[in-house]
Design a protein around this nucleic acid. Structure first.
Length: 461
DNA sequence: AAAAAAC
């Protein structure tokens, strides 16, 4: 009998381990080492395998609390939201939850609130999901910050802030504070806003030396574009320092379209008892975006090719990405000289100017935005149908940056719309980078001849 | 390389 139960335990372990590897968590498999073995055992004991799969097999859910029911919702009513919040949701034009929301919302709104690491492609409703989670926890009568959301850039913080304001507009007493550069406050006071959205440096200051925020009172902590927020070359230092100030029972929510393997592992380490949701494989993301490359031999040729394309890309709106601020401002100036109207946005500009430019672009007053990786992530302008990589995305070692590539071209083709991405290649080296990106996503990137007007006509359709 | 920090 003892033997039987042991055998069962082993079976369960294997089943659980298998489910882990199904979720690409192979690295966490049991190793012979005694300590690790114990750790793995307790993890497995806690873990209930739940491959919640809808009929199209797009969603993977790994739930860490065996006692809470696993379910998804097909309507917002099922979530029993406060009436003001439900009103806000419908006022934004959402009729029913998106795929990621169907699965993430019940987990995030569970009692007690669950931690979550969620990965889903661009334009699948991540922002609305975590904003809803924050708004459902907030107590507007308490005049102090209770929800904290970190964004990697100023522009994204503004954009997400707008979503919070819109969705929360039926809470009369609710206020939102922007913890971003340039937002200077009176010394020595505490802020009364219930929700704070901001960039890492300023938020850290507000929580620590300036003491505008009492981090111990935060109930919900959100990392948007979570992978870059916890990446070593990203904002890891500041994000983790902020996280350490939060109370133990604070809910942690990590959202991103991409998680590179090492960052994914790190995320699971820093989030206690995380639930995990993955939506779709990334290559499917690219199905709605047609990818091309243009072969050139120098920067000037790239510029010429871009000028040839200008008419085609201005049918709707376009974003042009450069590797450095310097190239971006050079390119914007050169395009202007040629008589093409373009806007420039980069981190070297003053925040007021940045806010004005992104606003004009959003309103459609600017058709073409020349920018850096500052706009690679999260910026959602519906009319953007073309993304041009004037420089391919590479990391500090000069290797292809696949995550950034996916985020950049994800600025187009939002919410299932069709999009177009054009990569400018100017050397053997950059052709090699492009080939490696192509291999990584296993999606054909076709050659485009910018001297052939028929071809340009074709892409502009 | 870019982004991110008020003294």
């Amino acid at each position: 009998m003892a033997t039987d139960s042991w055998a069962l335990a082993v079976d369960e372990q294997e089943a659980a381990a298998e489910s882990l590897s199904n979720l690409h968590l192979k690295e966490e498999k049991i190793k012979p080492d005694a300590n690790e073995d114990r750790a793995a055992q307790s993890l497995l004991n806690k873990l209930i395998r739940s491959n919640l799969v809808d009929n199209t097999n797009q969603v993977e859910v790994l739930q860490r609390d065996p006692n809470s029911p696993l379910y998804s919702v097909k309507s917002f009513e099922e979530l029993r939201l406060k009436p003001q919040l439900l009103q806000g949701v419908y006022a934004m034009g959402f009729n029913r939850p998106s795929k990621i929301q169907e699965n993430a919302l019940p987990l995030m709104l569970a009692e007690p609130p669950q931690n979550l690491i969620a990965q889903s492609q661009s334009g699948t409703g991540k922002t609305a999901a975590f904003v809803l989670a924050m708004l459902s926890q907030v107590e507007p009568t308490n005049k102090y910050p209770q929800c904290l959301c970190l964004s990697p850039t100023y522009e994204l913080a503004l954009q997400t802030g707008k979503v919070i304001e819109q969705m929360g507009k039926f809470y009369p007493a609710l206020k939102l504070a922007y913890a971003v550069r340039g937002n200077k406050l009176e010394r020595g006071q505490k802020i009364s806003e219930q929700i704070v959205i901001g960039t890492p440096g300023t938020v850290l200051d507000w929580c620590s030396k300036l003491k505008f925020i009492d981090p111990k009172k935060i109930k919900v902590f959100v990392l948007d574009e979570a992978d870059v927020m916890i990446a070593t070359q990203g904002h890891q230092d500041q994000s983790i320092r902020i996280q350490r100030m939060l109370p133990r029972n604070c809910q942690m929510l990590l959202f991103s379209a991409t998680f590179e393997d090492s960052v994914w592992k790190f995320a699971q380490k820093v989030v206690p008892d995380p639930n995990v949701i993955k939506l779709k494989r990334e290559e499917e993301t690219l199905d709605t975006i047609k990818q091309y490359y243009v072969l050139c031999s120098s920067r000037d040729e790239k510029f010429q090719a871009l000028c040839n394309l200008y008419g085609a890309i201005t049918i709707a709106q376009a974003m042009i990405f450069c590797h450095t601020r310097k190239t971006a401002s050079w390119l914007a100036a050169e395009l202007s000289k040629e008589g093409h109207q373009v806007a420039l946005l980069s981190g070297e500009m003053m925040v007021e100017q940045r806010a004005a430019v992104i606003e004009r672009f959003r309103e459609g007053k600017e058709k073409v935005l020349v920018t850096t990786n500052v706009c690679a992530r999260g910026i959602d302008v519906e009319q953007v149908s073309v993304v041009i990589n004037f420089d391919l995305p590479v990391d500090k070692d000069g290797n292809p940056d696949n995550e950034t590539y996916l985020h950049r071209i994800g600025r187009t083709g939002r919410f299932g719309k069709r999009g177009l991405a054009v990569n400018m290649v100017d050397s053997k080296h950059s052709m090699n980078i492009l080939n490696r990106i192509q291999e990584h996503f296993n999606k054909k990137i076709e050659r485009l001849d910018t001297d052939d007007l028929d071809e340009i006509e074709k892409i502009a359709n």
